[in-house]
Design a protein around this nucleic acid. Structure first.
Lengths: 146, 146
DNA sequence: GTTATTGCAAAGGCTTTGCATTACG
DNA sequence: CGTAATGCAAAGCCTTTGCAATAAC
């Protein structure tokens, strides 16, 4: 909506080699304007506010594309529906087991020690820490802890 | 097949209130005789050695039952198919992003620090650490690191 | 005009459900 | 008998794919 923001988003897609079509911009507005955690279906619903009639297949295609180019991360959290995280920097997660809600935890808050010992020469790809809790929804929805 | 082991397994099911039918015992033999990581389909295949003709629906029902009673854990790892972990004690995981292979990491090897600070009063359910790596399969398959 | 993108509908995996049949106390 | 467990087939999610129509250079 905001043209300044729209231009920044467009730039961000272009920077990683993604052609910024109207459909992809709709998805970008939903996901990339702020750090959020959403399922594909939620993204579709929200993106249709920007691009009515946007098709499910196109959203799935955009999500895969964004993930592949490092704009999003697919969280290894639940099982049923994939959750997309638009915070591109490394961090961990709180997960409300009752509501499915997710919140970011900055790296500084939670340190994993002993990695070298556990790896023993294996090539590290990444570390995911998911802290499962009750009652996250009683706190600021979708906010970063800290 | 060992009758001593069979009796121990039967006891373990009974102890948590699960009626040890032949079908459930077949699943128990596959999963609960040693710490393993398997998908439902792998369990079905293996369990049919003990109980030919065992149905898929029955295996899924048994898996849900075992999880519900704490004999198994469903791993929040990644991908399409759920992975069941028969190691009942708390621990973390190595995950081979290429093969889908999983290995246990004992708690002593990998410590998570700062939990209190991240929780800030939330009720903790559990912590999952998944270390994603390349090349795990070149090591002992399905073994515990240590 | 060629290549990329979209969108619909269909298909694909994984899992659950409905319901009749069978086993069990 | 009445309750629980099984098994088949069908249905249910979530996601991907095939393919024709459309848009972009």
């Amino acid at each position: 909506m905001n043209s300044v923001r729209a231009q920044a988003l467009q730039q961000r897609l272009s920077d990683v080699g993604i052609v910024p079509t109207l459909q992809r911009m709709a998805v970008a507005h939903v996901l990339l304007a702020a750090p959020v955690h959403m399922t594909a279906e939620q993204v579709l619903d929200a993106a249709r506010d920007y691009q009515p009639g946007l098709s499910r297949a196109t959203v799935y295609a955009a999500l895969r594309l964004f993930v592949h180019h490092g704009l999003l991360r697919e969280l290894p959290i639940d099982g049923a529906a994939a959750v997309y995280d638009s915070n591109p920097s490394p961090h961990h997660h709180l997960y409300d087991v009752d509501t499915g809600e997710v919140a970011d935890v900055p790296l500084e808050r939670l340190q994993v020690r002993g990695l070298d010992s556990a790896l023993q020469g294996l090539e590290l790809v990444g570390v995911d820490v998911v802290v499962r809790v009750h009652g996250l929804s009683r706190r600021t929805a979708d906010a970063t802890v800290g």
